[in-house]
Design a protein around this nucleic acid. Sequence first.
DNA 1: ATTGCTGCAAAACGTTTGCACCTAT
DNA 2: ATAGGTGCAAACGTTTTGCAGCAAT
Lengths: 158, 158
Amino acid sequence: MKNKKAAEILRQFLKKGQNRITPERFEVMDAALDYEGHFGADDLYVIMKNNSSRVSRATVYKTLELLVQCNLLCKRNFGDNMTHYESLYRKQNHDHLICMDCGRIVEFPSTSLENIPSQLCNELGFDFSSYSFNIFARCKNPKKCKYFNPKGKNEKLS
Amino acid sequence: MKNKKAAEILRQFLKKGQNRITPERFEVMDAALDYEGHFGADDLYVIMKNNSSRVSRATVYKTLELLVQCNLLCKRNFGDNMTHYESLYRKQNHDHLICMDCGRIVEFPSTSLENIPSQLCNELGFDFSSYSFNIFARCKNPKKCKYFNPKGKNEKLS
DNA sequence: ATTGCTGCAAAACGTTTGCACCTAT
DNA sequence: ATAGGTGCAAACGTTTTGCAGCAAT
């Protein structure tokens, strides 16, 4: 177990519920927290398999949900109909700009929004939970962008 | 054809490309623009089928993309891994609050954000295309909410 | 006549589920 | 001993694709 502090958070969370403390869950946690950037559940499964882990796809998917519940991860949706996860552990608040040409994801601090979401919830009579703010844009010079993806894989984003 | 002005927009758009002007495309356009609120591509297909249309699923999916391209529709992603479409025709700019208990979608004007997205694109060296701003929240009193969904269908949203 | 569009069914994709076996409690 | 978790494969729901026939240009 590489992330001891996070492991303690997970352990406490599992104890609180009726959840069992299993090695597989910590294995998934380590892989998830070590991942740089945003990943899909299946990506992580493949990575773990390539590192000769024996966890199953089902366990990876279920454990990621647990990690979201205890705030070690968060979910993101960038419009490509798959769930992206991202470590929240030791990270500051930020939002995302997605390049529609090359698929690059640029993070920027959320300062511009600050307390707009919770304020709006109050006005509308809701309890704030979370928000997502994504900007979709294009490299100023896609041809010269080293990430340029001529297939336009992310064309469908919006 | 019910929406004559929109039909003209679509017609011009199709002519500009190498696209053909077919009755099916106008049929999908009418169904889409007449829909109140957000809909999935398959929802629309089923509705059209129930109204004894002969369009195929493939045509509905493809035509919706065309309608997005000519700005009659826009895509939304609320985190449930399916694409929601919404008419842009005669609608003002707004964002969405999604209730995680009952799934209700509340629209509110985008005034609070205004020009933040395009400003940020400039700073980061991108050409602004679009943005999405979703707030996830819960009814202050879910038990009394007439939309209350005890199954928590939208629990996975974030 | 040509090329793009249609409908259909099959495939693809990410994700969830059912179940027999296993293991933490 | 008994919930709850695991791995596997099958099922799921949404979306895309291949293809033969059709229709707009």
